[in-house]
């Protein structure tokens, strides 16, 4: 059976069905957009009740994190994410799901090595590189402002 890796990769490309982007993009747009619109709606509601803008947006993040964590606990978030893809992954709700889901999953390994040790297995890289990039950004800003 004489077949190079490259030839096989060609065969594989033909045999493997690609993702149906029309469906996934539509889902991401509608559900992702829905989550952001809900955030905006909540902000307006909070401000209507006399909250200043900064506090209202802080409370929006807290509310969305709470809803996402609750839906994760109720085993519903992954069903939404199946259709939403990046639409439910990119907003803050996705970050909450990435922390709550391992916490639930690894409870069987105990509170220290399970929940404590594995809670950030998915969100960890986001935190590490998010902070690293923010430091870099701060340095660049500092240099430009000093000139």
């Amino acid at each position: 059976m004489n077949l190079t890796n490259k030839e096989y990769e060609e065969l594989n490309k033909k045999a493997s069905k690609p993702t149906k982007h029309f469906g996934t993009l539509t889902g991401a747009f509608l559900i992702g957009g829905g989550i952001c619109s809900l955030g905006e709606l909540l902000a307006h509601v909070y401000m209507n009740y006399g909250m200043v803008m900064k506090d209202a947006y802080m409370l929006v993040s807290i509310t969305l994190i709470f809803i996402s964590s609750l839906l994760t606990g109720l085993k519903l978030y992954d069903s939404i994410a199946k259709y939403a893809g990046a639409g439910s992954l990119v907003p803050i709700t996705g970050f909450a799901n990435a922390i709550v889901s391992p916490a639930l999953e690894y409870k069987s390994e105990g509170y220290i090595m399970g929940i404590g040790g594995k809670m950030f297995t998915i969100a960890g890289p986001v935190i590490v590189y998010g902070i690293s990039v923010s430091v870099l950004y701060g340095l660049i800003l500092f240099i430009f402002q000093s000139i």
Partner: peptide, 17 residues
């Protein structure tokens, strides 16, 4: 799933393959 991929409740999408 928990050994090879993600926690069960993690919201990810599966590829067609």
């Amino acid at each position: 799933e928990r050994q090879f991929r993600f926690p069960l409740e993690y919201g990810g999408q599966r590829t067609p393959t």
